[in-house]
């Protein structure tokens, strides 16, 4: 059975896939990510189809500001790197480093979330773009808000894992959990790459 892993020499290489449970988590999570791709695609398609429909409300060019989006992109991209580095620490059985890097990831994620809340607040109260103002507003808030909800979920996921396993060290039970959370975080970053390109840059780029 692949479930009987040799633990006599210490933490096995690739601890996230050392047990059958870990392998199954890994595989199942990729199925989920394939499905998420399709879900986000429908939201992107809806936004692209409806973005010209401003119904007399503010348009994308009037609202969006590149510096804020750039800052958000840098925050999320860097948090993706720290999450990758955390997984390297996990493979080396360096629990302390893994937790430190995950904490940095979470802090960067909260920075991103704060920027997004500020952005939405500005649009609603000073930009005059509510959720029901126009087709552009609805599809914009749905798409970017859905991504923000994913970020929020990912942050609480990381925090829960860190609290739950704060004292246990890296085990064969929690290694797959940390690994899968990190995969999720990368996926959020992948989606953001398309959001900043398709939603923000393409709107400002005059298409």
């Amino acid at each position: 059975m692949s479930d009987s892993v040799d633990v006599s020499k210490g933490l096995p290489p690739n601890p996230e896939k050392a047990t059958l449970e870990g392998k199954n988590k890994f595989l199942g999570f990729w199925v989920f990510l394939g499905g998420e791709t399709i879900m986000f695609a429908t939201f992107f398609g809806t936004f692209l189809g409806l973005r010209e429909g401003t119904a007399g409300g503010p348009s994308a060019e009037e609202l969006f500001s590149l510096p804020l989006v750039f800052l958000m992109t840098m925050l999320l991209l860097t948090s993706s790197l720290t999450s990758v580095l955390a997984m390297f620490s996990m493979k080396k059985n360096n629990f302390r480093n893994m937790i430190i890097l995950t904490v940095i990831t979470v802090l960067l994620g909260f920075g991103f979330l704060a920027c997004e809340i500020y952005e939405f607040y500005e649009y609603v109260h000073h930009g005059g773009l509510g959720f029901t103002t126009s087709a552009f507003g609805s599809s914009f808030y749905s798409l970017v808000g859905l991504h923000g909800a994913h970020v929020t979920f990912g942050l609480f996921w990381f925090i829960t894992l860190m609290i739950r396993y704060s004292r246990t060290g890296i085990t064969l039970t929690n290694a797959p959990k940390f690994y899968v959370a990190s995969l999720y975080w990368h996926f959020i970053d992948v989606v953001w790459v398309f959001i900043f390109t398709v939603v923000y840059l393409m709107s400002i780029g005059g298409a």
């Binding site: 199925v31 394939g34 791709t37 429908t42 398609g45 692209l48 973005r51 010209e52 429909g53």
Partner: peptide, 30 residues
């Protein structure tokens, strides 16, 4: 290999979904 297969499936379904939505909502209506 399996993760690759899952992601490829996702992309294969996602691409026509985006194109169809852009055409149906954007081009046909506006």
């Amino acid at each position: 290999q399996w993760p690759n297969a899952f992601m490829m499936t996702g992309i294969v379904v996602a691409t026509p979904a985006v194109i169809a939505l852009v055409l149906l909502l954007g081009v046909t209506k506006y």
